[in-house]
Structures are given as structure tokens and as C-alpha cells.
Amino acid sequence: MKKHAITLTVNGEERDLIVSSNRTLLDALRDDLGFTDTKYGCGTGECGACTVLVDGTTSINGCLTLAATMDGRSITTAAGLAHDGALHPVQQAFIDNDAIQCGFCIPGMVLKTISILADNPRPTEDEIRHGLEGSICRCTGYAKIVEAVQDASHRMAGVGE
């Protein structure tokens, strides 16, 4: 099987690696580069645990992406969101709204939230729920997750609280 030398910028840092043709982006991130914050859930693009952001704020499923097709692209995982020891406002909103139970879906949920708010800084509840489709949480009823997104929206707009 062909191997490919690629460069990924992960959370702002350039990483060179050699991947087999059938290596997924998810496996490259987790097993080759150690970004185990990106989770393996269903492997077929349904649960959203493997969500990462590409080139800024575009959410994709790492499990359905071949690493070798991502040469030169910039990837953000949940581990890259905190700056200087301070959590990203979306992460803090998830904590403060008790939106986390087991936590497995949360890296994907937080990244999806960033993606939603980048397109639409003040989403309605319907828009939030439509935007969170493709990220499945098996612990909660989503109510607190939606509240966390609304809170994050206020925090990032610099109003409320």
C-alpha cells in the first residue's frame, strides 16, 4: 500500500508525518500525533465524536477523511482551544451550564458550537439544534448543551452574565 508524506498544521503547530493510503485523519490525529481528545465513536460519520475543524471553522468527521488528502491543511481539535491556560469561552460555557456528563461527545460538541457561532453568532434554539445534528450525546437530553451554546453565544458577543 502506498504511503504519503504529508504536513498537517494541528492546533497551530506544523506536523510532518507519513501515512498509509487508508489512514483516516482520526487515526493519524489519535495514534500518530497523540490528539486523543478527538474520539472514535461510530466510524461511519453518524455520531460526531471525531469532529475536527478544518481551515478555521469548518466541521468535518475525522473518521471519514483520509489523512493523505489533507496535506497542507490546518486542523483544530478540542485540545487546541485553550489559550494561556484559559479555556475557550465555549468550553467554559459547557462547564458552567453542566452540559457535560460522561464527556465523550463534548470535544465534538464544543467544536461544532464554534462552527455554528462562526456562521451565526446569535442563533435561535432551532438553529442551534439544527446545527448540532450530527453530534450525538447519549447521556443528556441535549437541553443543557443547547443552553451552553446559547450562553457561549452571549459570552462571545460580549453581552449577558
Binding site: M1, K2, S20, S21, N22, A68
Partner: peptide, 14 residues
């Protein structure tokens, strides 16, 4: 490796 392992193939990038 994940449980759903892909068959082997050569990826060509024109």
C-alpha cells in the same frame, strides 16, 4: 486502529 478497518488500497492524488 479503529474497529472498522478499511481494506488496503493505493491512494492516487492527481
Amino acid at each position: 486502529m479503529t474497529s472498522r478497518v478499511m481494506a488496503e488500497f493505493d491512494l492516487l492524488l492527481p
